[in-house]
Amino acid sequence: MNFSYLVSIFGQLSDGLKFTVGLFFVTIIFSVPLGLVLSFIRVGSHKIIQRILGGYIWLMRGTPLILQLYFFYYGLSLVTSIQLSRFNAAIVAFILNYAAYFCEIFRGGLLGVSKGQYEAAKVLGFSTLQTNVRIVIPQMLRITLPSVANEFITLVKDTSLITVLAIDEILNLAKKIVNTDVNISAYAVVAVYYLIATFLLTKLFEYLEKKFAY
């Protein structure tokens, strides 16, 4: 094993980044806003919608993400006429799964904003929407920032689960290289990718926590 071999693997694995990084960003872009909207419904008072939402969260948190990947790729076409591509199935599963977790995180954050904040906003004449956008959500995001950071980091590593749908993201490529070369160093190289990503996210969230400290 020599250094140039490791570097060549590093280069080969970068082909898989479009799936790993793509899945990461698409999941974040859709699941965070979706989780935010759902969290407001979850703290609301509509009984039937509450039940449905509770069921959805139970399903998403109560089954393995791998099983959900299987469902959206293999299962969905059996119950409906929809056949998603491998990567699209992965995207749908990840967004729905992560939205459920973000919903619960944000719900916790919303409960952490004191009743007095709503009252102060009300007596100043803020509408419900203004209160939520200007007063409640900024405080809720600050409260939930450490948990959100945790989810982001978990997501980086969870992207490797799409290997089960034979998508060539970085871990799957590493596995192939290991099998071809009969050399396990590719696993060490792929670990470096994950470590770089999680390091950057950790620094980003440290910065955000400082910036939004009050």
Partner: peptide, 20 residues
């Protein structure tokens, strides 16, 4: 109700300033 109450201000025991 909102319009009527807009003529009044309120000060609370625990201030309730917006901390952010």
């Amino acid at each position: 109700c909102r319009k009527i109450c807009s003529q009044m201000g309120m000060v609370f025991q625990s201030f309730h300033l917006f901390p952010h």
